[in-house]
């Protein structure tokens, strides 16, 4: 499919939060949760629900009321609001599986302080219309949860040999994959993969464009 460079750039800009400027892989936000929270798929799904529940409303609040509160007060309000939402959301999440909060540990309540919240509201939401802020919040949390779920699937399958609790036939089981050090290394590799993929796509499309121009003349 000869997708031209313009189409590619437009597609990327429309899905800005998910593939092009992924908050975790390219932006480097919310790394502690991406490293420690992805030890099992259940954790990842719980965290992504929490992400959706906290980021989207907060972007709305930021774009509407956030501009007028002074800086230090504004941040504390966001964080307290996020913590309150997390308390509320913890009931539906508790239904996923009884031991969810023990395996998540502190990383569920850390969602209140994660950097996607603090940075996206500052950089984007303050000078954007409420609708655009909400759409951006949706895109970012979608990108965030996509990355987390993919990493969680890989780490759980290789680490425990189970997926969502049910055993899966795997070649080799490395229990040390669930430790924090492998989280760092695995996230580093994923960031490198994302960067490599975008370079590859751009260079191939630019080459097609050049080749297209040459044949055109």
């Amino acid at each position: 499919m000869k997708k031209s460079l313009k189409n590619y750039r437009e597609a990327m800009s429309r899905t800005r939060g998910i593939f092009a400027q992924n908050p975790v892989l390219i932006g480097g936000l919310a790394l502690p949760i991406a490293i420690m929270g992805t030890t099992s798929l259940m954790n990842a799904v719980a965290l992504s629900i929490a992400a959706f529940a906290t980021i989207v409303p907060l972007m709305l609040v930021a774009s509407t009321a956030g501009k007028y509160i002074p800086l230090n007060l504004r941040r504390t309000c966001y964080v307290l609001l996020a913590a309150a939402i997390l308390c509320g959301v913890s009931y539906p999440i508790g239904k996923i599986s009884p031991g969810i909060f023990d395996s998540l540990g502190i990383y569920y309540s850390l969602m209140a302080v994660n950097t996607i919240l603090l940075y996206r509201t500052e950089t984007y939401a303050h000078h954007a219309s409420p609708l655009a802020a909400v759409v951006d919040g949706l895109r970012n949390s979608l990108g965030f949860s996509l990355v987390i779920c993919v990493m969680a699937i890989l780490r759980e399958v290789v680490g425990k040999g189970t997926l969502w609790g049910r055993p899966v036939q795997t070649a080799i089981v490395l229990p040390s994959v669930l430790l924090p050090f492998f989280g760092f290394i695995f996230l580093g590799m994923c960031c490198a993969g994302a960067k490599g993929l975008s370079h590859l796509m751009k260079s191939r499309l630019i080459r097609d464009k050049l080749r297209g121009n040459m044949q055109g003349e």
Binding site: F184, G188, C191, A192, K195, G196
Partner: peptide, 16 residues
């Protein structure tokens, strides 16, 4: 491919 964020993450990973 590894310049910037990825290599620092791997560096911290090996230290941890």
């Amino acid at each position: 491919v590894f310049k910037g964020l990825p290599i620092v993450l791997i560096y911290i990973g090996i230290l941890s």
